[in-house]
Design a protein around this nucleic acid. Structure first.
Lengths: 213, 213
DNA sequence: GGAAATCGTGAACAGCGTTCAAAAACCATA
DNA sequence: TATGGTTTTTGAACGCTGTTCACGATTTCC
């Protein structure tokens, strides 16, 4: 009858994610987890170093699922023989937007997590999982036949990813959810369209002086 | 000898900002403020509703200063008769980057602040102050002679602002500060260049189906 | 100068994350 | 199965937190 150590961990993580998603990261309390999981507070500390460790583990699961959603969106388009770069980028952005909407509490909490303390150089398997998503974008850009070198393409992929991220997070900082959803869609469409046009136009993107001396 | 109510408030805010900037938002404690300000804990609650109110006030000051930095950057370029859109956009982004670097603790704390709880529709004079910054970008875009309608231009301004925001915040989530500073600069330059090229190329940005049915 | 209103105070309270001695559960071996 | 040792689970206890509020000091006003 006794649950496996790993089963208990997953149970704790599911409860933790639900708590965070419902009431924000302030809603993640050791005693609430213990009560809902049917274990004692002390047991949580046998499974995780501290509550931050629990939150970190929740975030890892979220990042994995986000990566899976992006990959699934690409697989879906591939199945339908859609190779158009614009449509693929919009589908990726759509997957991201859908994921954020599906996790209205736990995703903002993930973003807030690393910003609570000043960066103390975490080992961060975080970045690795974000890179997984970035690689998808880079691959999409690589298949479009832009006349740009490898370096520029990778920078472009990162820029696109960061920009979509900025649009989505800035958008949901504001109030009315439905009205802002339209605004986010407009901005993403404009970003993708402008990006493709700008890259298609070719030419160099070499560093230049930012302001006159 | 007794300090004005407003003087005391500003003293509290200065201390609060320093605490947040040094140790993240978790470092903002009522007893520490009271001790450093030479007042009692209770007095803080005569000046502000709660500690969140203190943090909110600190954030307002930050947003005001950020807006001033952007306006100052534009004024500086105007004084030197620089009207080039690209240079102005890069200067704005540079002002933002410089501001973030100058506030390595309190700026991330500002970003984390609204993400701690799920959006409960705050009255938010927040957005108003962010709009002040957005208006500067919109004005710069308006002075460039792009063949786009007013609506598109405003969306483009918001998109640019969100994108730069995303680039900067994503960039500083990673570790090594100096190495990442270069990456941020590269991404911002690419974003601005691609954006200008894409907008210059004209054409419509009308909504289109994101994926085939 | 005295009454009334305001302000400052810090002990007290409830709640939090975290610890750790003790109890319970488990397990291999005789 | 009985036994001894090892591991896991427990929850009371600790220190720290934000916040309150009765009380005393101070200012304000006529």
């Amino acid at each position: 009858m006794a649950l496996d150590r790993e089963e208990t961990s997953e149970r704790v993580l599911a409860i933790a994610e639900a708590l965070i998603n419902e009431g924000g990261m302030d809603n993640l309390k050791a005693r609430t987890i213990a009560e809902q999981a049917g274990i004692s507070v002390g047991s949580i500390y046998n499974l995780f170093a501290d509550l931050d460790g629990v939150h970190r583990a929740v975030n890892m699961r979220l990042l994995d699922r986000l990566g899976a959603a992006g990959a699934a969106a690409m697989a879906d388009l591939a199945r339908r023989d859609v190779t158009d770069v614009r449509q693929r980028l919009l589908a990726l952005a759509g997957a991201y937007i859908g994921f954020v909407e599906a996790h209205p509490g736990s995703w903002p909490a993930l973003l807030a997590f690393n910003r609570r303390r000043p960066v103390l150089s975490e080992p961060d398997a975080y970045e690795a999982r974000l890179d997984q998503l970035f690689e998808i974008i880079a691959a999409v850009l690589a298949e479009g036949d832009f006349d740009i070198d490898e370096d520029t393409r990778r920078t472009a992929a990162r820029t696109l990813w960061s920009s979509v991220h900025g649009i989505v997070t800035s958008g949901y900082a504001a109030r009315s959810l439905r009205r802002q959803a339209d605004e986010i869609e407009r901005q993403v469409e404009l970003l993708v369209a402008v990006f493709i046009r700008g890259l298609e136009r070719g030419g160099t993107f070499a560093h230049a002086e930012t302001t006159a001396p």
